[in-house]
Design a protein around this nucleic acid. Structure first.
Lengths: 342, 342
DNA sequence: TTGTAAGCGTTATCAC
DNA sequence: GTGATAACGCTTACAA
């Protein structure tokens, strides 16, 4: 029977006293140490006493002596982007299953460097950095830190990644197959690696097909709905000289682009095709539904977490590069052949 | 000059040795204790030594002795709902400014009770519970815990709230003013208090105007896009016997409803008016833009955090009830007078 | 003003 | 098997 409210949480000492054993024995029994050899009778008594007192190990104390906190840090560029949220969910699922807490850090609120400082002070066991340019971080904030990177290449840190370049290529091939030749692209001006790779995959596939991407048709905008809207607006004005299709390197941008088209009275996909990237839930909410490239966000997060956990358990030696997660095109309602020229 | 990579993070002992003082003195200087009286020269020396070694206090150790972790827990019903995310952001902003870390817990991943257990074990200083029915939680998981509730009434815990009932009323008055008499409502079947209050405000205002809400027109669905879509689909079938307007107690639901209308070819707002609640960013992304009731999510979070922090500092005595945050109707494109009957 | 010393709750290393 | 005992890094009386 579990006890009721106690003013001060009970400790191993309390349990020891009640069970009539030494505090160390309690630790041995309750510490979950597999190779702890304790007499069955003693163990039994300790466990009952612990239940009686409603004993809960103090993770902070344990962390102090073991030098570990059983907590992970996660730094993402922007939590408001559903894609990153999905990655975080993947991380949380496996972390909490393994008994780890997750400290979520949004780079929009504080700089990654400051977040890192705060995390270290908490004896964080490891950190997962979603595409954010770890390389740009102050070196000494990274020393002796268990780190796993998501969607960015690194000599120094192990990581997991999706096929970002493939995502761009898929988008291009889809548009090309539909017959588009006048295409534009909008992406954020950040140094987030996966965004750059998406762009590269797109432009390369275009070039391989002999299609040029005029510099004026490469719009930069923050990876938000508002950003996409503004970018598309800039792409629309002069009839005749506008693209017939646009690739947005993030669904949020694509949603904004769709909005701009709706506002301007440009029919999608009749007069303009739009392709996004991520496949967030909202992609299927708009009408017509957004054609996009699906990226396995949750799986990405889960793998990153597993990789980090393995590393923490010392089983990190096997740093096999880790397969790049495949992406896939999801053709929906915002793409069609270009309008036949009047 | 800050030092470069050190294998083991330096401690107060290291600083003491370098500065030629005792470890306790270092603690006095660096501990930020306002009433610590240390000679200016000594203090100077300690600070320089600390910088030299790149000393960072170990928050875990400090937490152990002070019985505090300088971390806050936040439990929300569903992080995928942008509204709650916004609340969290408000919390994070003020928490991190005050030097507190935030542990985010999504009730969809693990039960609130388990989350609470995990948080306690980490000596969490306090917890903010977003509308989730604290009352239903096991009593002994709450004893001796600093808790602040958001958007739910409680005898036991201080909290902050938005005018949920007012939100429902505003939606109803808007619809009534437009001339609607055949109205439906869709909301989640949860025990989340704010949702229930929104419903109550809506139905009361309706009743006050002599308009009935047939039981078949009160649809229950999870507070997600998919949920709203299904609920609206159920509301649509038989022409002639369907409502002319729907109030969704969450924007996510409203977005789903809009989607269902689009799929079924029902014109919005021509043949059907839709009102949401929350005013998330996506509300302005769809076309037409969603009429909704704006709730100050971020401010709600910020206030909750400030309240909790004040409580932690012992200044909690002044538990003045805290003003209820006002909401306001944002008329946009999804509402219009009902179609003139054929 | 500064140093000494006693913990905070746990784990881990030894003797017994 | 079990029980002292020494850390872990820090704060905080209390002594000097």
């Amino acid at each position: 029977m579990s006890s009721s409210s106690s003013p001060r949480p009970s400790t191993t000492h309390d349990v020891a006293r009640l069970a009539g054993v030494s505090q160390a024995t309690v630790s041995l029994v309750l510490g979950g140490n597999p190779r702890a050899r304790v007499a069955a009778a003693t163990r039994e008594r300790v466990i009952r006493a612990a239940e009686e007192l409603g004993y809960r190990p103090n993770i902070v104390a344990r962390g102090l002596v073991r030098g570990r906190s059983y907590a992970l840090g996660v730094i993402v560029p922007d939590l408001a982007n559903p894609f990153f949220l999905e990655v975080v969910r993947g991380i949380e699922r496996v972390a909490s299953t393994a008994g780890y807490a997750v400290l979520l850090c949004d780079a929009r609120e504080t700089t990654p460097a400051r977040h890192l400082e705060a995390l270290r002070a908490r004896l964080i066991d490891g950190v997962i950095v979603d595409p954010l340019g770890v390389e740009g971080l102050p070196a000494d904030s990274l020393t002796d830190l268990n780190l796993v990177v998501v969607d960015q290449p690194s000599e120094r840190w192990p990581g997991v990644a999706s096929d970002a370049e493939g995502a761009g290529r898929l988008a291009a091939e889809h548009l090309l197959a539909l017959g588009h030749r006048e295409v534009a692209m909008v992406g954020p001006a950040t140094d987030v690696h996966s965004f750059r790779m998406r762009e590269r995959g797109f432009t390369r596939a275009l070039r391989a097909a002999g299609v040029a991407l005029p510099s004026g048709w490469l719009r930069r905008a923050p990876a938000t709905v508002a950003g996409g809207e503004a970018a598309m607006r800039a792409l629309l004005p002069r009839r005749g000289s506008r693209p017939t299709a646009v690739f947005c390197t993030s669904d949020l941008l694509a949603l904004g682009a769709l909005k701009a088209c709706a506002t301007a009275g440009v029919a999608v996909p009749g007069a303009m095709s739009v392709v996004g990237c991520d496949d967030i839930e909202m992609a299927r909410v708009v009408t017509p539904e957004l054609t996009t490239v699906a990226v396995p966000a949750r799986e990405l997060g889960a793998r990153a977490a597993r990789l980090l956990l393995r590393q923490l358990d010392g089983r990190g030696g096997e740093t096999r590069p880790g397969r790049v997660l495949p992406v896939r095109l999801v053709p929906r309602g915002t793409t069609a052949p270009p309008p036949t020229d009047p």
